[in-house]
């Protein structure tokens, strides 16, 4: 930043913060009674209850209800301890898996040159 923009920024900051004080025309008079200095009529017990308990409670229930409705859609989550009893699904597998597996000869299964890795959890 060059000197000119620095000066411009400084001048703007001073004007914006001090300006309202300098533009005193009686509105910002700090002596004497002010708006909002005296308390209002207050809320009745019912209004207090409604405003601070019922309305937030209602909002919470609506949000919670929406979340609860969303949660059920994807089904129960997988937990390793719970086990698995679903039918196996083979993505991009042979057209007829049972036949294909049964037709694998003994020497085919021992085909050398296969690689890969194993793991458990």
């Amino acid at each position: 930043m060059n000197r000119r923009s620095c000066l411009t920024a400084a001048a703007l900051t001073v004007l914006l913060t001090a300006g309202p004080a300098l533009a005193a025309d009686g509105k910002y008079d700090m002596d004497g009674p002010q708006e909002g200095g005296e308390p209002g009529p207050g809320l009745s017990a019912l209004e207090t209850l409604a405003l601070y308990v019922l309305v937030p409670g209602l909002i919470l229930l609506v949000i919670g209800g929406l979340a609860w409705l969303q949660g059920g859609r994807s089904g129960p989550r997988y937990r390793p301890a719970r086990g698995w009893d679903a039918t196996p699904v083979w993505f991009a597998g042979p057209p007829n898996p049972t036949e294909a597996v049964a037709s694998v000869g003994a020497d085919e299964a021992a085909l050398a040159g296969r690689g890969g890795a194993s793991g458990s959890w």
Binding site: W84, P94, A100, R114, G116, S118
Partner: peptide
Amino acid sequence: HAALGSRAHTAVLIVVAPGQRRAEVVTGP
């Protein structure tokens, strides 16, 4: 993996057994 037939030579098979808790990857030659 061999059951993939003619694909097996160049195929990668991923097996996930969620109940037996084992995961395997097999790569063809």
